[in-house]
Amino acid sequence: MLTVGDQFPAFDLKAVVGLEKDHEFRRVTSNEYPGQWKVVFFWPKDFTFVCPTEIAEFGRRNGDFKDRDAQVLGVSIDTEYVHLAWRKDHPDLKNLPFPMLSDVKRELSTALGVLHREEGVALRATFIVDPQNVIRYVDVTDLNVGRSVDEVVRVLDALQTDELCPCNWKKGEKTLEAA
């Protein structure tokens, strides 16, 4: 499994981006959010019980991620058509503000090493990826454990927060360099 410090693998996946007729699908690639952080989270299967709760919660908190220059991407190994059907079927998923990616060839989940060995579906993995495409945080749980979006926001804050003001200058240190 890839971990902190590794480059997040390149991807080019079909995704559901909305329910509007003829605008339901588009390709989402690893290159399209330059300068942004990415929060990529996986769930095992569409139409299961724990999933919509946490996916909907990521949706409700999307503004908090946008405020932190972070793009949320949800992924499972279901096809884009199953994603669409689920979104049409489940009221909490109708207005989801981030793309639901279809890793139907399991290339991304294999590259990351987050496939369940027996079930062949993605584990509940969450990756925070910085603008240089480096993985800065990984969290994986067994199939039926839900996760806390609060915790993901807290970690993102901690990763992004540095005392960058020259006021933090201490005697003997060189002048702070702009990143």
Partner: peptide, 9 residues
């Protein structure tokens, strides 16, 4: 400090 000040840089 755990205070965001990213705009400084």
């Amino acid at each position: 400090a755990r205070l965001r000040m990213n705009r400084m840089v």
